[in-house]
Design a protein around this nucleic acid. Structure first.
Length: 221
DNA sequence: GCCCAGGTGGGTA
DNA sequence: TACCCACATGGG
């Protein structure tokens, strides 16, 4: 499996080049982006982050002090802005209550503890937690998203019923725990997914991964 | 007008 | 466990 996953990685890298993820000027900005991007295109997140910056609210303390209504209004371009304003507050509350608003105290935890701590926050699920661990804390935790599942499914690597944990474990037990590798791999999967493996698209023929596909005639969707 | 985008939580059977 | 729904903008 290791050989196969690395082969996929190399093909994607050759086809699309390095993706330079995650865009963000600070770890906190990465976290905010990770929450705001839930179920929404990144262009919308950029607008929201710009608005938060403009209002000088892009820091744990400032965000913790700001009313949810104010935050919601600023992040309106993102979908579900009321929900997401609450999620941002939930995270800053954790940071204040348990880590004296110090991000690096939180990041000092080992990956399993850090992951549990993040998952305990309302609004942070597995994908968001792993994105924060990988791209903000710079620790090796592979991010599984809808594209990853779809692509691996169409390649015949995973079952459509595979759980998040199962896919993540498969990848993490096969690949070395390497932050640059995990970062780039996830970014490339998203890039490929956007280009080729959208929900309604038929199977990938004529694509960088077609030679690696174990399934001859993949079902749509 | 329609589809869908770098998800999560809560409710029901 | 396994679905189903709410959340509710903006670009192609």
């Amino acid at each position: 499996m290791k050989k196969r996953l690395l082969e996929i990685y190399r093909n994607l890298l050759a086809a699309y080049g390095a993706q330079a993820w995650w865009p963000g000027e600070s770890p906190f900005e990465v976290i905010v982006g990770a929450i705001l991007t839930q179920g929404v295109a990144w262009v919308n997140v950029e607008k929201a982050i710009a608005a938060l910056k403009g209002a000088r609210l892009l820091s744990p303390d400032r965000l913790a002090q700001a009313p949810v209504e104010t935050i919601a209004d600023l992040i309106r371009p993102c979908l579900y802005y009321n929900e997401k304003a609450k999620k941002l507050k939930a995270f800053t509350s954790l940071l204040q209550d348990r880590y004296s608003s110090d991000l690096f105290s939180l990041f000092a935890l080992e990956i399993p503890c850090l992951r549990q701590e993040l998952l305990s926050v309302w609004g942070i699920g597995e994908e968001t937690a792993d994105a924060i661990i990988l791209y903000a804390a710079n620790k090796p935790s592979f991010v599984i998203d809808a594209y990853t599942r779809r692509i691996f499914q169409r390649l015949g690597i995973i079952d459509e019923k595979a759980t998040y944990a199962a896919v993540r474990t498969l990848v993490m037990t096969s690949l070395p725990a390497d932050v640059p590798l995990y970062s780039e791999y996830h970014a490339l999967l998203v890039r490929h997914g956007k280009t080729r493996c959208r929900r309604r698209n038929p199977a990938c023929h004529d694509c960088p991964l077609s030679a690696l596909c174990l399934v001859s005639d993949v079902a749509v969707g």
